[in-house]
Amino acid sequence: MTVSIETPRAPRTVRRGGINWEKWGWIYMRVSGVALVVLIFGHLFVNLMIGDGVKALDFAFVGGKLSNPFWQWWDTLLLWLALIHGANGMRTITNDYARNNLVNLILKGAILAATIVLLILGTLVIFTFDPCPAGAAANLLPTFCSAG
């Protein structure tokens, strides 16, 4: 038998145009997952292990970090990658368990809204944070406040 059938009964599925969200969502989870391992453990290491360890944590410490562009961008990356990673996971779980179309839509809308609000708020805090609020006791503030 050497009969060659040119793709028997094969109606090639037409790919709907546009972006394949399911594929990019999957790739995003893998890539952000790897990046988050570095970002989160770097964050924990710097905050809790180096120097005085957990005792060093106070307003001055956080204020000092958030006025350094390196840590601003570190935290921004951490915020965006982690929040979208978590939201996408929640979306997947919602698709699994919320069988009712309306409930499904409401839950996913709520997740989307919460994600957007938190991303905007978080980014705003990171870049507009004032480490030297007026009228605060000098011993609670980062050292560079009194220098200037």
Binding site: T7, A10, R12, T13, R15, N20, W21, E22, K23, G25, W26, T92
Partner: peptide, 20 residues
């Protein structure tokens, strides 16, 4: 010779990306 056809089918919304 039909790999591309099958990969297109499995690249679908309900294809391999659903695997966890």
């Amino acid at each position: 010779e039909g790999s591309q056809v099958r990969m297109d089918i499995l690249n679908d919304r309900e294809g391999v990306w659903r695997c966890r």
